Amino acid sequence: MAIKRPPVALGPGTLTFGTVSVDMLDISCQVTAAKVTFDSDKEDDLPTLCGGVLAGEKNYTAKLEASAAQDIEKDGLIDWTWKHKGQEMPVVFVPKNGEAAAINGIVVIDPVEFGGEVKKRNISEFEFDFVGMPVFTPDATADSTEYPPLPEP
Rank of each mutant, 00 (worst) to 15 (best):
Ile3Trp: 00
Ile3Val: 08
Lys4Asp: 10
Pro6Ala: 07
Pro7Val: 04
Pro7Thr: 09
Pro7Ser: 09
Val8Trp: 01
Val8Gln: 10
Ala9Arg: 12
Ala9Met: 10
Leu10Tyr: 02
Gly11Ser: 10
Gly11Gln: 13
Pro12Leu: 05
Gly13Asp: 04
Gly13Trp: 02
Leu15Ser: 09
Phe17Arg: 04
Thr19Pro: 05
Val20Lys: 14
Ser21His: 06
Ser21Arg: 09
Met24Gly: 05
Asp26Ala: 05
Asp26Glu: 08
Ile27Arg: 03
Cys29Tyr: 06
Val31His: 01
Val31Arg: 12
Ala34His: 00
Lys35Ile: 00
Val36Pro: 01
Thr37Gly: 00
Phe38Arg: 12
Ser40Gly: 07
Asp41Leu: 02
Asp41Gly: 00
Lys42Arg: 15
Lys42Ile: 08
Glu43Leu: 06
Asp44Asn: 14
Asp44Pro: 02
Asp45Pro: 03
Leu46Phe: 03
Thr48Val: 11
Thr48Met: 12
Gly51Ser: 11
Gly51Trp: 06
Val53Ser: 09
Val53Asp: 04
Leu54Arg: 13
Ala55Ile: 06
Ala55Glu: 11
Gly56Ala: 07
Gly56Pro: 03
Gly56Leu: 02
Glu57Val: 11
Glu57Met: 09
Lys58Trp: 00
Lys58Ile: 15
Lys58Glu: 15
Asn59Arg: 15
Asn59Cys: 00
Tyr60Glu: 14
Tyr60Thr: 15
Lys63Leu: 01
Glu65Lys: 11
Ala66Val: 10
Ala66Asp: 01
Ala66Met: 15
Ala68Trp: 10
Glu73Thr: 14
Asp75Cys: 01
Leu77Gly: 01
Asp79Glu: 12
Asp79Arg: 04
Thr81Asn: 04
Trp82Met: 08
Trp82Glu: 11
Lys83Glu: 13
Gly86Tyr: 00
Gly86Ala: 01
Gln87Cys: 10
Pro90Thr: 11
Val91Leu: 01
Val91Asp: 03
Val91Tyr: 00
Val92Pro: 00
Pro95Gly: 09
Glu99His: 12
Asn104Cys: 08
Asn104Ile: 07
Gly105Ser: 03
Ile106Ser: 07
Val107Gly: 09
Val108Asp: 04
Val108Cys: 03
Glu113Met: 10
Phe114Arg: 08
Val118Cys: 01
Lys119Met: 11
Arg121Trp: 04
Asn122Ala: 02
Ile123Lys: 06
Glu127Ala: 14
Phe128Ile: 01
Phe130Asn: 04
Phe130Glu: 10
Met133Arg: 14
Val135Asn: 09
Thr137His: 04
Pro138His: 08
Ala140Gln: 14
Glu146Leu: 08
Pro148Gln: 11
Pro149Leu: 05
Leu150Ala: 13
Pro153Ser: 05
Pro153Lys: 07
